[in-house]
Design a protein around this nucleic acid. Structure first.
Lengths: 189, 189
DNA sequence: CCGGTGTGGAACATCGATGTTCCACTATCG
DNA sequence: CGATAGTGGAACATCGATGTTCCACACCGG
C-alpha cells in the first residue's frame, strides 16, 4: 500500500473523492450556497465521509477550483491553438470549452466573488490572448476588438449557450451551433 | 400624517428605504452571500433599522428583485422599441440596459438560483421578443438567430462589458462601445 | 476466519447569521 | 417646550451549517 498511496488513482478512495467532486460540481452550479449535507447526499455518501476527504469547506472549493482549471487547461490543449488561423483556433476552443459543461459554469461563477484575479489564475490565459493576436495578424479576427474583450465574449456566449441547453430551451447541439455562429460573426473582420 | 402615509415618497422613511436598497445592490453584487450587517453598514444605518424596513431577509431580496425589474421595465420603455428598425431598437435597448449597471447584474445573478423562470418574470420579455421578430422581418436582424437566443446574447454581452468596466480593464464608455459593436455584428444578417 | 480499511450515522460543540425585544438618544413639529 | 417619529445599540434566543468525535457495520485480502 505504501507504494500505491501516491498513485492510487483507481482505488476506492480515489473513486469516492471523484464522486464527491462530481456531485459538488452539479450541486454548486445549481445553488452556489448549497450545504455540505446537500453535496454529500448528491454524491451518495455520508456527510462524515465528505469531511474525511475535505476537512473544511474551503478545502473542497479549492480542490474544485483546481480541478476545474485543470479541465480548462486540458480543453485548451485539445483545441491546438497554434494550428490554422486565429479564428479557426478560437472555434475549436469554443467547442472544447462547451463540452466542459457544468465545470465551465463553476469556474465562471466561482471566480467572481473570490476577487478580480479571475484570468490571472488561468494558466492558459496567455495562450488564448496569443491566439487572438495571431488572428489579428492573419486577418481572421477583427483587429478592432481587443484580446481580453474577445476572451470575455467567448465566455459570455458559452455561459448563455449553456444556460439555453440546461433549461431545455435548446438542445445541446443547437446551443453549441448558435454559440459558434454568434462567435464567428463577432470576430469576423 | 395620515394622508401622506401612502404617498410619502420623499419623507425620511422613504429615503432610508432607498439607502438600504441602494446599498444592498452594491454589496450583493460584490458578494451575493453578504450578511445583513454588511448591508446595514454600507447603507450607514443600524442593523435594527434594516429589520424595521425588511423584517426578514427574504423581504429585502423580494423588494430588490421588484425594484430591479422595475428599472429594467423603465429602461425598456426609454428604448422605444417600436421605433425604427429592429436592430436600431436593440441598439437603444443595449445602451439603456448598460446604464442600469449594478442593478442589471443583480437581476442577472439573482434570477438563476431562484429557478429557471428568469425571463417569464420579466414583464417586458415579450416586447423584446417582438422587437427581434420585427428585426427579422425588416431585414435588420439575422433571421437564423432565434429571439430568445439574441436576448440571451444581449444579456451575456452586457454582463461581460460591465465586468470589464467594473474591474477597470476598460472605461465605462469603451466597454459600452465594444458591447454595442459586438452586438451589432452578431445580429447583422 | 480475522484484521485492516473505508464508510455511515449519531451525538455533540461551535460559530455566524438571523430575528426579536427593549431602551436611550435625537430631531422635528405642533 | 413637550410629544412623537425615527434611529442606534445592546442583549438575547434561535437556527442552520460546520467541524469533531466515537462507534458500529460492511467489505476485502491474507
Amino acid at each position: 500500500m505504501d507504494v500505491r498511496t501516491a498513485a492510487a488513482d483507481t482505488g476506492t478512495k480515489a473513486r469516492t473523492r471523484r464522486a464527491i467532486l462530481d456531485a459538488a460540481v452539479t450541486v454548486l452550479t445549481a445553488d452556489p450556497a448549497a450545504s455540505l449535507a446537500d453535496i454529500a447526499a448528491a454524491a451518495g455518501v455520508g456527510r462524515t465521509t465528505v469531511h474525511r476527504y475535505f476537512p473544511e469547506r474551503a478545502d473542497l472549493t479549492t480542490a474544485l477550483q483546481q480541478m476545474g482549471w485543470e479541465h480548462v487547461v486540458q480543453a485548451t490543449r485539445r483545441a491546438r491553438l497554434t494550428e490554422g488561423t486565429g479564428a479557426e483556433g478560437l472555434d475549436r476552443l469554443c467547442q472544447e470549452y462547451f463540452e466542459l459543461g457544468n465545470v465551465l459554469m463553476l469556474v465562471f461563477n466561482y471566480s467572481a466573488p473570490d476577487g478580480d484575479v479571475t484570468w490571472e489564475c488561468d494558466p492558459d490565459n496567455q495562450s488564448v490572448l496569443d491566439l487572438i493576436t495571431r488572428g489579428h495578424h492573419d486577418g481572421s479576427i477583427d483587429p478592432t476588438l481587443t484580446g481580453p474583450w474577445i476572451r470575455d465574449i467567448l465566455w459570455a456566449l458559452l455561459y448563455a449557450a449553456w444556460q439555453q441547453s440546461r433549461t431545455g430551451v435548446a438542445s445541446r447541439h443547437q446551443a453549441l451551433d448558435s454559440c459558434l455562429r454568434a462567435l464567428h460573426k463577432v470576430v469576423a473582420p
